[in-house]
Amino acid sequence: MIQIDDIVISLDVLREKFLCNLDACKGECCIEGDAGAPVELDEIAKLEEVLPIVWDALSPEAHTVIEKQGVVYADRDGDMVTSIVNGKDCVFTCYDERGYCYCAIEKAYREGKTDFYKPISCHLYPIRVGDYGPYKAVNYHRWSVCQAAVLLGKKENVAVYQFLKEPLIRKFGEAWYRELEIAVEELKKQNLL
């Protein structure tokens, strides 16, 4: 582990390779699992704000869930997560003509319809950030549905932190990311990576 400010980073984030391969997984991370995506408290208002913009792109089942319980709910651990359809699909998922799953919020962002990209937990995946009071922990989350991303990351030699440069900067800032890159170079010089 290394630490930058009050953020502890697992060496797996620096060592492991990862590069999303949408052609292989078709966006399965948005539709598998037993809970929705973790949501920070300040993101709830953003999700509600963007809802009218993405409403027509959402499934009728998602409409029903949102009307009944809202855009988020507390999971079994008491954490706020996006609402889900049929016990697995995030309510903000949509499908294209190829059957690929994508985020309706991200699509609206890319079309210039909103300034909210999507929940930071989604943008950061496969990194999960744990909050432990005086410090935060940045860890690499392994999931079998992302095996194709691991293989492509190895082929292209892209580390998790490199693949997630944009969301890491969004979460922690550019100066923090520069410090991370400096730390990685130092670890490489010491043959620790």
Rank of each mutant, 00 (worst) to 15 (best):
G87L: 00
E156Q: 12
P60S: 01
E67D: 09
D6N: 15
L19S: 10
G33P: 03
Q3H: 05
C94P: 04
I182H: 14
C146D: 06
K88G: 07
V72K: 03
Y177P: 14
K188Q: 15
V50K: 12
G78T: 04
P38V: 02
I182P: 02
I44K: 05
E186G: 05
G33A: 04
K68Q: 01
G36E: 04
D96G: 00
E185V: 08
C30P: 01
H63W: 00
R98Q: 13
A175D: 14
E156M: 14
A45N: 14
R98M: 09
L151G: 10
Q69N: 12
L152P: 00
V71C: 06
Y132S: 08
Q69P: 07
E49G: 15
V85M: 07
V184S: 01
K154R: 13
P126F: 08
G33Y: 01
V71W: 11
N191L: 13
C122G: 05
C146Y: 10
D23N: 02
Q69W: 07
Y140M: 03
D12V: 04
Y177L: 07
Y177E: 04
C122H: 07
C103K: 00
C20V: 04
V129R: 04
D77N: 10
L168C: 03
K165E: 14
V129T: 14
L41C: 12
K165W: 03
L152M: 06
H123S: 09
K171W: 02
V13Y: 04
A137K: 01
D79R: 03
Y100R: 11
D75A: 08
V158I: 15
P134N: 14
P167T: 11
K118C: 00
T93D: 08
D56R: 13
I169K: 01
V13F: 05
K46I: 14
K107H: 15
H63Y: 04
E174A: 13
K154D: 06
V13E: 03
V91Q: 03
A183C: 12
G112A: 12
T64G: 02
E181M: 14
I53W: 03
R128V: 08
K88P: 00
F163Y: 09
Y109K: 15
Y125C: 02
D131L: 12
L11R: 02
A148V: 01
D56H: 13
E43T: 10
G36I: 11
E166D: 13
R98A: 10
L22F: 04
L14V: 13
N157K: 09
I7P: 00
L124Y: 03
N157Q: 07
I105F: 07
V39Y: 12
L41G: 15
F116S: 07
G112T: 13
N157W: 11
I105V: 15
P134T: 10
L152D: 06
G173Y: 12
L151C: 01
I182M: 14
S121K: 00
F172H: 12
A175I: 15
C122F: 04
V150K: 08
Q3D: 01
A74Q: 00
V91S: 07
G153E: 06
N157I: 05
V65P: 05
L151P: 05
A108C: 15
I169Q: 03
E185R: 15
K26P: 05
F163I: 08
L58V: 04
A104L: 04
I7A: 14
A37F: 05
G130V: 02
A37K: 06
I127S: 06
V150E: 03
D77W: 13
A108T: 13
V50S: 11
N21W: 04
